[in-house]
């Protein structure tokens, strides 16, 4: 997806305004001539100038305001691009409940299937991949990976 430079420039000017507004509210301890908002304010000015330049350069450029990549217009293209962020969001949302092994298995298997691998190969990839990642990060590098709160239900028995 690509916005026309005129739209992009306007969005950038808006963003710079927002940054400038927040920076103006940043006040340091009294007696400091150079406040904490000085640098962000300069950056906001720079972004606004870039936005204006991009808009000006594109003011006579023809074309639609939003161009969607033909691959994204097909459902499969959109799914392909969004599946990686979706995988990360899924991981963050369920990791505490499911624990690392189960979350990683589901995530790798679903992504492999979505990318076109066979179900059998995806399942094998998920099991081997999660075991390898667990061995490397949890066992070798001692990164504390979540065990999953669903296991607590069984601990009472």
């Amino acid at each position: 997806m690509r916005l026309h430079d005129r739209v992009l420039g306007l969005i950038l000017i808006g963003l710079a305004g927002l940054l400038g507004f927040h920076s103006a509210n940043l006040t340091g301890p009294s007696g400091y001539g150079l406040g904490p908002g000085l640098f962000p304010n300069l950056i906001a000015l720079g972004i606004a100038a870039c936005g204006l330049l991009i808009s000006l350069k594109a003011r006579n450029k023809p074309g639609p305001m939003i161009v969607v990549d033909p691959r994204l217009k097909q459902g499969s293209g959109l799914i392909a691009v969004s599946m990686m962020p979706a995988g990360v969001i899924f991981y963050v949302l369920v990791i505490d409940w499911f624990g690392f092994m189960l979350t990683a298995d589901i995530m790798i298997a679903l992504l492999s299937i979505a990318l076109g691998a066979s179900r059998k190969a995806s399942l094998l990839n998920a099991i081997l991949g999660s075991l390898l990642a667990y061995g490397l990060f949890a066992e070798l590098l001692r990164v504390p990976l979540a065990t999953g709160s669903w296991l607590n239900y069984f601990r009472g028995f």
Binding site: G87, M107, S112, L115, A121, S122, N125, A133, F137
Partner: peptide, 28 residues
Amino acid sequence: PRALLLPMILMTCVLGSYAMTNSSFGIV
């Protein structure tokens, strides 16, 4: 096969970011 490789790389990205902050903040 990229269909098998890319999810594994994503897993490494997620765990690598988590390891840096020891919280989901790194992943976000």
